[in-house]
Design a binder for these strands. Structure first.
Lengths: 136, 136
DNA sequence: TAGTGCTGGTCTCTTTTTGAGACTGCCAAG
DNA sequence: CTTGGCAGTCTCAAAAAGAGACCAGCACTA
């Protein structure tokens, strides 16, 4: 049931990479993580990891995202090289979004976290409930 | 150099877990991911995975976080059960933050993503630069 | 021929979240 | 007696996100 951790850097080194020796505003690791830490990024990555989707399909698949945020999140994911945007010159034109190789590679890493969330969400729920009860 | 993926669910299943069969606003997986998707959560988790820190130490360690967001992010992480907050009754009282077992477990999963970011940030940078150039 | 709907968005307005920084109370050192 | 460290809170401004109207172009329908 455990997933093996192979060749990971020490925790110390990971943290160092995120502070980048003081050059905080330009730290590349934080820069990359920032792009993934939006509210909708991981959800859309998970959807597109399953299969390519069109704009309207994604909208129906994730009904509680606003059109504005769907547009913008897809734009950001495309800009960072995770998502490919292909326009078909039909009438009206349709647009298909799919993962790039880089996107699939990144999702391979993100997947661990999503998996953890699925396996442990009741522990988090319990912690939250207990904390709120103790505060009251 | 590759890290082995053991016993991961199919991509389809992960996405399904995030949509939870239509029960979107109450989906536990999205709920958990939401708590981690803040701007500072992963950075503070990485710091505390290295060693316990006090409030002021964290503030100096991450100089570009505002005091308000440091307080609030630590509060949220504590509420979700990842972080333990221990008050020492010195004068003035000092407060130490450390990871719980749940927090360490979660960081084990998060670590893959941080590691990926470190290994691939130049690819993302390149993609971004290329995209911006193409837009201009 | 007028109305309806689908395509993938943009625009504006309001609400929420975040950031910057002043302020608190307590105590110890200089 | 002023200064500084401790761990925050409070207020106000700026940025981000959400809600929903609106756009052009074409197909289908009545």
């Amino acid at each position: 049931m455990d997933s093996k951790i192979v060749n990971l850097k020490s925790k110390l080194e990971i943290y160092k990479a995120m502070t980048d020796g003081g050059n905080l505003s330009d730290c590349p690791v934080r820069d990359v993580i920032q792009g993934l830490s939006g509210k909708w990024s991981s959800l859309l990555m998970a959807a597109l990891a399953e299969q390519p989707y069109r704009f309207g399909e994604l909208r129906r698949l994730v009904p509680d995202i606003s059109q504005r945020m769907l547009t913008q999140t897809l734009y950001d994911l495309q800009r960072d090289g995770y998502v490919h945007r292909k326009v078909f010159p039909t009438k009206p034109p349709s647009v298909e979004y799919s993962l790039t190789d880089l996107g699939r590679s990144m999702f391979g890493a993100l997947q661990h976290l999503l998996q953890w969330a699925e396996l442990n969400h009741d522990a988090v729920r319990d912690a939250r409930a207990g904390f709120d009860a103790a505060q009251a």
